[in-house]
Design a protein around this nucleic acid. Structure first.
Lengths: 338, 338
DNA sequence: TTGTAAGCGTTATCAG
DNA sequence: CTGATAACGCTTACAA
């Protein structure tokens, strides 16, 4: 027993003694129904436990209300924070989020986009990875909207939101120099996404402009463990750095822990550290990390706002629209002399 | 321009010179199509960029492939870890996850379940909050499957997965006593969910059984900040505890930071601390927290496994099925003498 | 193996 | 304001 049996509009209509169109109209926001009909329909619906079938509605309206969130590393502080904001705003806008985890296997962003198409998602938001050009084009041709968050600005997609990683990284050089640091280092992961590389390039360039060399090291993924390993490598050099900019807060936490607990260095006295993302842990008093804040709310707001707007207005489908957001430096205690 | 125009099976059929049923059959796993027809359909589909419309398919099959994840505090380490496992396994099982964030406003679990019904979800997995009995019954009556993770065991739902919170909490008393602690304390939040309260009761009961009193304090939400506040309150008592069990790792991290940085206490020498959840940060060397591991993978596995199984087999819809999972104590450095 | 036709639960159109 | 009727894109007997 217990097959899936949902009650349909016809049953409600029968019970309320009206036509099925009347039922449909009752549940369509801007439709004309008399108060009396409406009342009777609502009553019958309540009694029967009727709920509009969004699948059928989507079929007719050619608009599913579904927005796909394509993301890897969901359990990471920054990603999950962005996820929280996005789902919240999407819901407020009457949309529903379909979450596609691209953690395992390669080319899974493409698979995710294909799934978005199969479910006739109104839009896809890509938080991780890069879609293949052809599949992205297919999405756009199908009339699906695409948002790329912190992806390469070269990637196709009608809305691209990017941070000023390069410039931000430059600003931290100034901070280090002001703190009296001379031997700068950059700790990066090997994943080499555009944002990460932009931070590295920006940091190195700004340092070079001041006539300083930067020792760069890359290892592993962008997590805590990689930060520890990076510290082990970089702090055993003959020339120990006195300031290190980590491409990510997670890296910074790992780096700091290793510096303190394995090399007995004091932060920020012997070593200044900066990170990027402003994850919650950066503010925990064990770390108290100076870092750049990802404007999570702003990113989510811009995204959903753009999605909620009518099509015609932003139909820059060929070139795409690019929004640049600013990463604010959050001063805490890991750089001397805030 | 750029209305949503997806290519339909009819167009593929026309191009391939076959009937539309042939197309349908080609994309239905166990259907009989000749190799030649199949090839031509696939070719046409590829050329046109055709993708099955899951909305329409769901309408016919009465099975959407959608599973709703109802959750609050997504950005929290434990929750996001569970989310990661669930989405991954669901995808592997050919399902797709719809994420409903219940952070804001009350009664939103009910709203979420209603949405699950509207999208004809095959199942809903509830990670936070409690559904109203009536709406839960409606889901079940509609043939939607319900899974409750770490909710009250009294709640309705055919699959309930729960931890042995009560017993686990008892085991930490033993650990504290073995470490020579005499003044036990329990730091809890005010949210009072069943799991949290079970930990508190289990801890107090086990301590009482050994003739020890426990000072219990409750404050705020289950986060880091609340942990700090709890420490400030509990460590200014005339009778300072020498061991504290925090209902959550997040609370424990906050508590530990406050104890060290504001009260200059050393952990575990002057104060033993235990937490619950085994979030990633618990293993970071600044905390090195002894804690209970949430069996995240097991939870996700049990859930998806149950969902993948045919209906008849587990149609214990009235009583529901209850799975008890064990929380393993992870020994680290925050209790003396591991 | 194939095509034809009916039907899934909606909404949109169009008379009344 | 209301009710018939025709889509929407798909699956699935049923018949060939």
């Amino acid at each position: 027993m217990s097959e899936k049996v949902f009650v349909s509009a016809k049953e409600v209509a029968d019970r309320a003694g009206v036509s099925r169109s009347a039922v449909s109209r009752t549940f369509t926001p801007g439709a004309s129904v008399s108060a009396e009909t409406r009342r009777r329909v609502l009553e019958a619906a309540e009694a029967l436990g009727y709920h509009v079938n969004e699948l059928a509605r989507g079929l007719m309206r050619n608009e599913s209300g579904i927005v796909c969130l394509i993301v890897s590393d969901v359990a990471t502080p920054y990603r999950s924070a962005l996820l929280r904001e996005l789902t919240l705003l999407l819901q407020k806008a009457g949309k529903v989020a379909m979450l596609i985890n691209t953690d395992r296997s390669d080319g899974s962003v493409d698979r995710a986009l294909r799934q978005a198409i199969r479910y006739r998602a109104d839009a896809s938001i890509i938080l991780s990875g890069m879609p293949d050009r052809s599949i992205a084009q297919l999405c756009l041709r199908s009339g699906q909207r695409l948002v790329l968050i912190n992806r390469d600005d070269e990637q196709p997609g009608p809305l691209r939101i990017n941070l000023d990683d390069y410039e931000a990284a430059g600003r931290v050089v100034t901070a280090f120099v002001r703190a009296g640091c001379r031997k700068l280092a950059f700790a990066n992961s090997e994943v080499g996404t555009p944002s990460l590389m932009a931070r590295e390039r920006g940091f190195v360039a700004a340092a070079n402009a001041l006539g300083m060399e930067v020792s760069v090291e890359r290892y592993g993924w962008t997590g805590y463990d990689a930060g520890k390993v990076l510290a082990q490598r970089m702090l055993t050099h003959t020339q120990r750095p006195d300031a290190v900019f980590c491409a990510t807060d997670l890296l910074a936490c790992g780096f700091m822990d290793a510096a303190r607990h394995q090399f007995s260095m004091s932060v920020p006295d012997q070593l200044c550290i900066a990170g990027f993302d402003d994850i919650e842990q950066a503010s925990w008093s064990s770390y108290n990390l100076t870092t750049f804040a990802q404007p999570v709310s702003a990113i989510a707001f811009k995204t959903v706002d753009w999605l909620s707007r009518p099509r015609a207005e932003n139909d820059d489908a060929i070139h795409g629209q690019s929004i640049g957001l600013h990463a604010e430096l959050v001063w805490r205690g890991s750089i001397r002399g805030g």
